[in-house]
Simulated assay, not measured.
Amino acid sequence: MINVTKPFLPPREEFNRYLDGIWNRGWLTNNGPLVNELELKLKEYFDVPHLFFVGNGTIAIQIAIRALRLTGKIITTPFSYVATTSSIVWEGCSPVFVDIHPQTLNLDPALIEAAITPQTSAILATHVFGNPCDVEKIQAIAQRHNLRVIYDGAHAFGTNINGRSVFHHGDISTLSFHATKLFHTTEGGAIITQDAALAKEIAHIRNFGHDGPEKFHGLGTNGKNSEFHAAMGLCNLPHVTAILAKRKELSLRYNAMLKPLQCIRPVLQPLTEYNHAYYPIIFKEEKDLLKAVEALHHVYVYPRRYFYPSLETLNYVEQGQEMKISSAISQRILCLPLYYDLSVEEVVMICRALLRAQNY
């Protein structure tokens, strides 16, 4: 069986060394030494001043919204994982969907300003499949209208723009370290900001609002993560270069073999060093996608319709204008298996099954 993804696991002896330390210290959570070490190493990796390791990528977005004190309406993308939208609603704000660019699949900057009203407080955009948003245009719009910017960077670990991490952009970037991601801590996430005042606010919110053992800064939540999860991250981080290289190798093999297939691929932003987080293909029609899925299932390969459905169709958001591009793409896009342990031979088999299904 070949699933769309499979977690990378480091050599067990590397993880066991960290477990020995946890057992010796008896310090399991509450900002322990391994959490601190992971935060420091990730700040160095991304070259950012402030990074907080949290429980998951969803709580990261929720804390970002809370730290920025956002209210009213937040402009966002309909083409993302459901957590991007649900976090906005969870925090008492209203998502306002703006359609995506048909080539990059990211929030289309050309459509944002028409959706801004006096109630708009922020833009929450996703770097879809690790492909950076048009950060310069979004920042210019935000400055003109005095809006804050959050980037959902759940897929963007290892993606650079102009030689720097994509996480240097926006007021806050959020990350997911879920087991399905190319870098993971089993469960986990992070929040990155360049702003020292915001960092102080995030630190309080992440830890119930504590400002000392018996004093509270304000309303907070439990956004912390454990020493066990930090240990997995510390084991996986030294392998990131190899993970990125392998994913690139497999993606290039897909590219070469699937040239005859009448599918299109997302277009990367200029000056992007891509992380190959996913391998999505977009079929001409949904029936072609369904035919491909059936053919792959016959050889025990399980791709994913990702993202599907378009988020403006969720039953807990205000039903408004249809997002025509997002809706059309979501019906025709399929992510093929891509992970470190996937072999070149398995990629060849997957490609052959797809080509047979489309009569090539």
Rank of each mutant, 00 (worst) to 15 (best):
W90A: 15
W90K: 12
E91G: 09
E91K: 05
G92N: 11
G92Q: 09
C93F: 09
S94Y: 14
S94R: 13
P95G: 04
P95D: 14
V96I: 13
V96S: 00
F97C: 01
F97H: 06
V98Q: 06
V98L: 07
I100A: 06
P102G: 13
Q103A: 15
Q103E: 15
T104G: 05
T104C: 03
T104Q: 12
L105D: 07
N106P: 13
L107T: 05
L107A: 02
L107S: 03
L107Y: 03
D108W: 15
D108T: 08
P109M: 14
P109T: 01
P109Y: 07
P109C: 03
P109F: 13
A110C: 14
L111Q: 14
I112R: 00
I112P: 00
I112M: 01
E113W: 02
E113M: 01
A114K: 15
A115H: 05
I116M: 10
I116P: 01
I116H: 00
T117F: 08
T117Y: 03
P118V: 11
Q119E: 15
T120L: 04
T120V: 04
S121W: 06
S121L: 04
S121V: 05
A122P: 05
A122F: 05
I123Y: 07
F129D: 09
F129T: 10
G130L: 06
G130I: 07
N131I: 15
N131W: 14
P132C: 12
P132T: 05
C133Y: 02
C133R: 02
C133M: 09
V135E: 12
